[in-house]
Amino acid sequence: MSSGTSVYQAVASAGDRVRSLSDQDLPAMVAIERASYRRPWAESIFRDCFRPDYQLWGVESDGGLRGYAVVACLFDEAHLLNLCLHPEDRRRGMGRCLLRHAVTAAFDAGMARMILEVRRSNIGAQHLYESEGFLRIGERPGYYPDVPEREDAVVLSLEAPGSRDRR
């Protein structure tokens, strides 16, 4: 994976752009989250993510926020906590664009790997992550709260190029 915007333009339309997010983006982030999930994150959770050890990225199209990624960085590991696109914008390349940007930014910041959890039932997201080089490394039983039962998560990981050489 190389840094630079050319890789992002190849998968997103010319009007899309990725940018860092600020707390001014909270209302749009919460609206996208609520339109996407039965059990959305609360605004307070998003607010807590605006701190130095987190990276928050958004994809804009036609001047409005259409999706976001939240990444926590600890020691040498980036944890993709949330990647979400507005339902109207899925399957247009924006998710791949945002994922590539988040991965590149984390690796450029010195992270050796990125990990994430994805619902076992979210086959489309699993295919996206695996097509970008993520490998399955485990499961987290009952990870996602749901009604009437909890849902398992599949855990995926992507090693930074040359990260094994750094150890």
Rank of each mutant, 00 (worst) to 15 (best):
L65F: 00
I137W: 08
I45S: 14
Y37W: 09
A78N: 03
C49N: 07
E132W: 03
S36Q: 09
S44N: 09
Y129G: 08
E117Y: 05
G138Y: 01
V71L: 12
P145F: 04
L128Q: 10
G138L: 08
L128K: 03
R120C: 04
R38Q: 14
R113Q: 14
T104L: 04
W41H: 12
M111D: 03
F134S: 05
G138K: 09
R51L: 02
A125M: 11
G138C: 08
A42N: 08
A42T: 08
G64P: 00
R47L: 06
F46M: 09
D53K: 13
F46N: 11
G124D: 13
G64V: 15
D108E: 13
M114N: 01
V71Y: 07
I115P: 02
S121Q: 13
P141R: 15
D62V: 01
R39A: 14
I123E: 15
S121G: 08
L98N: 11
Y143D: 08
F50N: 05
E139Y: 14
F46P: 13
D62F: 03
S36P: 02
D146Q: 10
R113C: 14
P52R: 15
F50S: 05
D53V: 05
L128G: 03
L81R: 04
A72N: 10
D89N: 12
R47K: 11
L116C: 06
S36Y: 11
P40G: 08
S36F: 11
L99C: 11
L74V: 15
I137A: 02
L99N: 12
L65D: 03
S44R: 13
L56S: 04
G58M: 03
R100D: 10
G133D: 04
G67M: 07
A109W: 02
G93K: 02
P141E: 11
F134H: 05
L116Q: 03
L65H: 00
D48A: 15
R92K: 15
G95C: 05
E132T: 03
E43L: 12
G64T: 14
H101Y: 11
H101P: 00
H79S: 14
